[in-house]
Amino acid sequence: MTATTDAPGTLPTPTDEARLWALIEAAWAELGPEPLALRQALVERDPADDDDDDDDGPYQAIDAWLDAFLDRLRHLSAELTGPELTALDRVVERKLHDIDREDIHEVTDGSDDGFLYARGFIVALGRTYYEAVRTDPAMALLDAECEAMCYFFAHLHDDRFGSLPGTGSGISRESFGNPAGWSA
Rank of each mutant, 00 (worst) to 15 (best):
residue 140 A to W: 05
residue 37 A to C: 10
residue 11 L to T: 11
residue 31 L to Y: 07
residue 149 M to F: 03
residue 63 D to L: 09
residue 113 D to N: 14
residue 60 Q to H: 10
residue 108 T to N: 07
residue 52 D to A: 13
residue 12 P to Y: 02
residue 118 A to M: 03
residue 51 D to F: 11
residue 158 D to N: 14
residue 3 A to T: 01
residue 38 L to G: 09
residue 149 M to Q: 12
residue 106 E to P: 03
residue 183 S to C: 10
residue 181 G to W: 05
residue 158 D to P: 07
residue 158 D to Y: 14
residue 73 L to P: 09
residue 135 T to K: 14
residue 10 T to Q: 11
residue 159 D to R: 14
residue 120 G to V: 06
residue 23 L to P: 09
residue 116 L to M: 08
residue 99 I to P: 08
residue 137 P to F: 06
residue 138 A to F: 01
residue 151 Y to W: 08
residue 47 P to F: 01
residue 110 G to S: 00
residue 66 L to P: 06
residue 162 G to V: 09
residue 99 I to K: 08
residue 35 P to A: 07
residue 39 R to M: 00
residue 124 A to H: 07
residue 135 T to Q: 12
residue 32 G to M: 00
residue 12 P to G: 00
residue 150 C to L: 01
residue 130 Y to K: 08
residue 54 D to P: 08
residue 13 T to V: 10
residue 19 R to P: 07
residue 95 K to T: 01
residue 75 H to E: 15
residue 123 V to Y: 04
residue 130 Y to T: 04
residue 150 C to V: 09
residue 158 D to V: 11
residue 75 H to I: 02
residue 14 P to K: 02
residue 13 T to E: 10
residue 136 D to V: 08
residue 169 S to I: 04
residue 29 A to K: 05
residue 163 S to I: 02
residue 9 G to S: 00
residue 142 L to N: 13
residue 107 V to Y: 04
residue 86 T to F: 02
residue 175 S to G: 13
residue 171 I to P: 02
residue 4 T to Q: 14
residue 55 D to G: 08
residue 112 D to F: 12
residue 39 R to N: 02
residue 24 I to K: 10
residue 36 L to Q: 15
residue 50 D to K: 01
residue 13 T to S: 15
residue 95 K to L: 15
residue 20 L to Y: 03
residue 100 D to W: 03
residue 53 D to G: 02
residue 23 L to N: 04
residue 149 M to W: 06
residue 95 K to Q: 10
residue 24 I to L: 15
